[in-house]
Design a protein around this nucleic acid. Structure first.
Lengths: 334, 334
DNA sequence: CTGAAAGCGCTAACAG
DNA sequence: CTGTTAGCGCTTTCAG
């Protein structure tokens, strides 16, 4: 069997409690006793059973990260960047990370609540929550520490870290306007996500500002997916009064649209200018390099993680509401 | 307080044991009793405490994944792809994933062993293990279920899933030879990694095969890093007898080298041809698109995960040794 | 088919 | 400064 606290205690001729105190630096222990215990722990190659500790202490020093389960999870650069920020901070604070992929389109959507109930984590970070997720309000009410990433809701206990999506979209569309475009289309993504709605707002704000008509045929709905956008963009390109610029609600969609434009033997940006959103890695390398609105994704992850730890340690109280800045990055596609 | 098995038992007027049996489908329970218990569990919104279950059963249904802690963890497309494969399989088998970032260059290198001892996981997957990691043999001896990814060692209990790196490198270099190149350099990466050594072998094999000299000044050592490769490649470009082709031990380095070549106002592939290794996502989008050796990274992750689960469930026994095929993908850089 | 007893390894709370 | 008692919530083992 494994070395336990009892073995150490026996060999050191003290109680298990004293060993535990040495282990956690909790409570006073005579220097000599402590040294002796430490040396015995080394000698026996003792390592605490963290499961037992968690059961007893009701803490796991683990945070769960709920991510949408997509075909190839980590290949989504948006998620990758946020996870980087989240884990960096967690690591520094000696918290462990458990990933909880959730299938948004299926029954297991509320699964993360079961995980909460199962006492596996001290807190939860949620990526890509849907606006209509009914479990969210339950989570918010429960008092369990959590932070939503890129979500925004001003009810009582909604904790979130979001970026300025409306403003970001405004920057993008206004940039197109400055470039002389008057026929600006929008590939909107899925209206299930708060962010998508915000970007829509920004898009419409600028059209209104410059008294451009909001034309329904210039707005394409779908999901945040390169292939879908690729297909759907035909609707725009087949239009008699074809747009001269397309703002896309994320970079992956922008790439899909650009591919389609090439198939039509049109040129980006000469015939049609494109702006994306997020600033994913390949945007910089694609041809033409993608003009986009940068979300500080790594920062968002970092900030979320910090906020969550503060909630767990009760340094902060709900609601936590943090907004980060977005920024236009002009490259070759406009 | 939370609903526990005891509450259910009390309300159903049975012992906790009977509830536990219903919970796990273990052992016989009268149909009616079972139904009653189930309905009470629903009514009380009961969810088992998984920590308690783990402590008692000595299983966690969690696997740990050891990844090198780099600046921006998930942004490494190699790791991302492997993780995708690993998690997909784990998920399907109802196993959870815990990430263990490890700083290779520091003391905490052996940390993953402490995690093993801490009973947090049922098994371990190791990415980017170093050849000289002294903890590996301890792990192998321990009998604890684990699989190393992209590693290869034929001692008794070494479990690994690797790809055919030697052959892959041969494909790359032979391709350059066919294209007419006789002065072929090699950006080798770090010899700490088995894979790098294998690629070196492949490189030398082809030179020998075609009776080309192995010139030390044509081999650049370093670490697997874009920036380092970028800097070090100057040594090649400054050579009087400059190579006409460079094989790089991974794609990120290849990208770094290409940048440097551009700075020298030389053209890829006209002046210097480049082949990378791995087939990371941006290789397809960079300019020129990167010729590379594809490792089936998603498959590697998937296979590793499957093998690990088989070890955990004792369907398989050590040693597990699996090799996957590599494949040349010719694009614009050669 | 059901239950009782024991224990997984640790920590909290209190007492000395 | 140290120890005792109790218990975290579940499963295993054995007995009925």
């Amino acid at each position: 069997m494994n070395v336990t606290i009892a073995d150490i205690a026996k060999k050191a001729k003290v109680s298990r409690m004293t060993v535990s105190r040495v282990l956690n630096n909790s409570g006073p222990v005579a220097f000599d006793t402590a040294e002796k215990i430490k040396s015995i722990m080394k000698e026996l190659n003792y390592h605490p059973n963290l499961i037992a500790r968690s059961l007893s202490s009701q803490r796991t020093t683990t945070i769960g990260v709920v991510i949408p389960k997509t075909e190839k999870l980590f290949l989504d650069n948006y998620i990758a960047q946020i996870l980087s920020g989240v884990t960096d901070v967690a690591q520094k604070n000696n918290y462990r990370i458990m990933l909880i992929p959730v299938n948004h389109s299926r029954d297991d959507e509320g699964d993360y609540l079961n995980f909460v109930r199962s006492k596996l984590f001290d807190g939860l970070i949620l990526l890509k929550a849907k606006t209509d997720d009914p479990h969210l309000s339950e989570l918010a009410k429960s008092g369990f520490p959590y932070v939503m990433v890129n979500y925004r809701k001003f009810g009582d206990n909604y904790n979130f870290v979001d970026s300025e999506n409306i403003k970001g979209a405004e920057l993008a569309v206004e940039h197109l306007y400055y470039k002389g475009h008057r026929k600006i289309a929008f590939v909107a993504g899925s209206m299930d996500e708060v962010n998508a709605r915000d970007r829509m707002k920004g898009y419409k704000n600028i059209l209104k500002k410059y008294k451009l008509p909001i034309r329904e045929e210039y707005i394409i709905y779908g999901d945040f997916n390169r292939v879908t956008a690729h297909e759907n963009s035909k609707k725009l390109l087949d239009l008699k009064d074809r747009p001269t610029a397309i703002f896309c609600s994320d970079d992956y969609m922008a790439l899909g649209v650009i591919e389609q434009i090439k198939k039509y033997k049109l040129s980006v940006p000469k015939d049609i200018a494109i702006v994306g959103f997020d600033n994913i890695e390949i945007g910089e390398f694609s041809k033409p390099a993608l003009t986009t609105v940068k979300q500080p994704m790594y920062e968002i992850g970092k900030t979320s993680s910090e906020a969550l730890l503060a909630l767990i340690k009760k340094i902060k109280k709900s609601p936590v509401r943090i907004m980060l800045k977005t920024e236009l990055i002009v490259r070759e596609s406009t």
